[in-house]
Write a protein that binds this DNA or RNA. Structure first.
Lengths: 232, 232
DNA sequence: TCATAATATTGACATATATCAATCCATTTC
DNA sequence: GAAATGGATTGATATATGTCAATATTATGA
């Protein structure tokens, strides 16, 4: 593994406070791999053998039941995923597949749990991380239960706008079919939802979104930090 | 606080491994109170001043947005709630209200965080707890996104049946209006959903549920441990 | 015990969302 | 560059779910 990647991983909140010795020991057991697009990295229900770290590319976390499937989240660099399953030594609740060519680090779950027992700063960092993940899912659940699909789309666009600098135009960062699934709707409905936002000054051209009237769309979307603030 | 309650709290997973000294110190700062029904204990958005422990009664965790509201969970004894907000020193994401007369312990969040820094066994116990909470919410999200309301109800009934011993009849443990909100539907729709399960051998009489044909309802509900197992 | 209030149910209807089929459009592949 | 592929859009329609109003049922308190 190149030094720059090693340092990038070290700077993740979850690893930044642990001792050098423990970090080195964790990394010694790491596998690093480049995966092509559309590879299933993880299948729900299987034992959680590895904690994953995504260094480049993007990964879709999804789940299937009774012939249906739904995307729960898209993970981007640099972050870990499947932490809770690793810690609890429990089966994966979601499957994961690469959306594009992606570089992934695999840390054996056993090693992670062993260091977790040894290094209490690592344990505390995991607490903080899990608490944040938990709160993120609660926010998603509120989004799903309290909002219509049109409202979810409007707020999603405002979050993306903020994340990409706040300008009037920005790009969607994955295809609409996937976005529909993340937002809990069908692709057809997403198309119609985009049309439904036109009266509020939102236009779409391929993956390019333009917000012509910020006040209008915000008045409709009513974004709320307790649902839409990604941090905190 | 009576000794028996003190011991009950001590036996919660999150507290059972910490030193006596730290536990005693935590409990010294605790407030214990009996609340009547329908008291709002917590309001979303406010700073998380206390970690709550419910000793008796029941508490509804809910959230509001744009004039709508939805119940996210019902908490029963003996357990803690609002752990993630306490740990992150972040605002509550949900409100909480007593559903009936309830006995609640309030632990100042500052104290919890202080002991969290001192006692690494406590920190590790919190990791385990948060990982479980996280996985529980992910399961709920899968339930919401992958199932229709009829399927959610069917699986909910199967979970309750299991929890109450597995017999053919059992009681709902809160009113249907609340159940509807927890399941993400309206009370009217819940009524119709109960009717919709009759062809699968489910009958309802007030709060008493009877499952006349276990195989039939299971064939319809298709329960899945990755969604419906409360533990793991 | 009755009176009152709250919850639950039902029916009629409106809206939201999904499904299916056809077409359009962009991209890839040869 | 033409064909082929897969995603995106559109229209027609079906289904699921929500809303409103009326009534029934249950719980509550004087």
């Amino acid at each position: 593994m190149p030094d720059s990647e090693y340092r990038d991983i070290r700077q993740l909140n979850i690893f930044s406070q642990m001792t050098d010795e423990h970090f080195t020991s964790l990394m010694r057991g790491a596998y690093i791999q480049n995966f092509p697009a559309q590879i299933e990295l993880i299948t729900e229900g299987e034992p959680s053998d590895f904690l994953h770290i995504i260094l480049s590319g993007s990964v879709d976390l999804f789940s299937c039941w009774n012939g249906r499937d739904s995307s729960l989240a898209v993970v981007r660099p640099i972050s870990t995923f499947i932490l809770a399953a690793t810690i609890r030594d429990a089966p994966y609740l979601m499957s994961a597949r690469t959306l594009e060519k992606s570089r992934i680090v695999l840390l054996p779950s056993q090693d992670v749990r062993a260091i977790f027992e040894l290094d209490s700063d690592f344990a505390r960092a995991i607490v903080t991380e899990l608490a944040q993940c938990y709160r993120a899912v609660i926010k998603t659940q509120k989004d799903l239960k309290l909002r219509t699909s049109l409202e979810r789309l409007a707020n999603y666009l405002l979050r993306m706008q903020k994340r990409s600098g706040g300008g009037a135009t920005f790009e969607l960062d994955f295809e609409k079919r996937l976005l529909a699934s993340v937002l809990g709707m069908t692709p057809e409905n997403l198309s119609r939802a985009f049309k439904g936002l036109q009266p509020y000054g939102v236009t779409v051209n391929g993956t390019l979104i333009s917000i012509h009237n910020q006040a209008d769309i915000e008045r409709f979307a009513k974004p709320n930090p307790l649902i839409d603030d990604l941090s905190s």
